[in-house]
Write a protein that binds this DNA or RNA. Sequence first.
DNA 1: GTCTATACATGGATAGAC
DNA 2: GTCTATCCATGTATAGAC
Lengths: 219, 219
Amino acid sequence: MTKALRKPATNNALNVAHEISDRARDKREQIMQGALRTFLSNGYSASMDAIAAESGVAKQTLYSYFGAKEELFSALMDRLLEHFVHAGMTPELRSLPTQAFLRKLAQITLSQMDDWEYVSLMRLVIGESARFPELSELYLSRLVSPGIAKLAQYIRENDELAFGDPEAVARIMHGSLINFIIAQEILGGKHTMPMSRDRLINSLIDVILFAAQQSAQSR
Amino acid sequence: MTKALRKPATNNALNVAHEISDRARDKREQIMQGALRTFLSNGYSASMDAIAAESGVAKQTLYSYFGAKEELFSALMDRLLEHFVHAGMTPELRSLPTQAFLRKLAQITLSQMDDWEYVSLMRLVIGESARFPELSELYLSRLVSPGIAKLAQYIRENDELAFGDPEAVARIMHGSLINFIIAQEILGGKHTMPMSRDRLINSLIDVILFAAQQSAQSR
DNA sequence: GTCTATACATGGATAGAC
DNA sequence: GTCTATCCATGTATAGAC
């Protein structure tokens, strides 16, 4: 009914094709959202029945849009990874004083990762890394590696951060943040070994800036 | 035959019971080793058939020793976690100069983690953290938390490492090492974004020691 | 106590009506 | 294109012979 209102009059072949295409996109989207929730909740072992139920379509419909479970999964992961590729360092961020920049960057990084979808994605990527090594590779090359590279470049170009091995320092910073999320959010450390984000960030910045000062001094 | 040689003469009830108990222990051990390999390779989704085959026993035998799959899994994980509880800081280690101590500690930590069983365990713990939160909790409380606590204590008691928040600094150090293993060994970063352990360790020690000097100076 | 054979449920994937 | 009903393999768990 509402459909007739949106698209009245002409019923030529082209319009029909277009309408079908629109519908197909909607259904496809509907499936992907349901499948995403199901996979992120239950891992790759989520059943196609469960996905169909969560998506609100029949199981056969899944197979008409995606040939097999693995294809659906891959398509989803591709899209999800793409979604989390962040804007990176905006010019305004880079123009901040060093300390403010590092704090802001750490906060942004933690905020992005402290999210149900992101945390579930990490669990899935790590948990299925034996079965889907390509997924791990994609995760590293799309999300981890660029983040480290940008941070390393920032360190390299910043005179206040005169480290001998910017790449390694970037890994240390990034790694301590990622592991904080893994421990606190994925493994439940927020309950069994709680620590506020700010405490971690403060110490991380202290350590990096102090080290940078000393490093500059000792040259 | 050899059994008769080891345990000759008397065949009273007690001896028989003992012999049975010995055998049972052996079978149990045999099952656990096969199950361990299978679970670590294939995750919790490993089938009982596969475990029976790998263990070299019939499926029913699994069920006579462990009531159900989940019990077998739990028993295994308990034992494996216990196995990896390391000696910790030996007195001779603590007597080293600060820099040598930190380097040695980092090397030991990475060496312990860079091991097929340990890596597989981490993947399993993280991957199944939604299904088995108790396993995550056990992992944190037995392996992670004590390691961080000991390192924090060392920092606190060492005059050369005058940090304001030893606990947070310990997390940063520990976290960057753990995440290095996750990225390089679990996610395949050793191929796609290679970096030697020594580079990471060197930079980590540089950063910590430089920061400590500066921190002491600025008091 | 251990094996073979089997029961029962669930998984992925497909056939056929509409 | 979408649904219902079904196929077939595999999974956990158990029964019964030895």
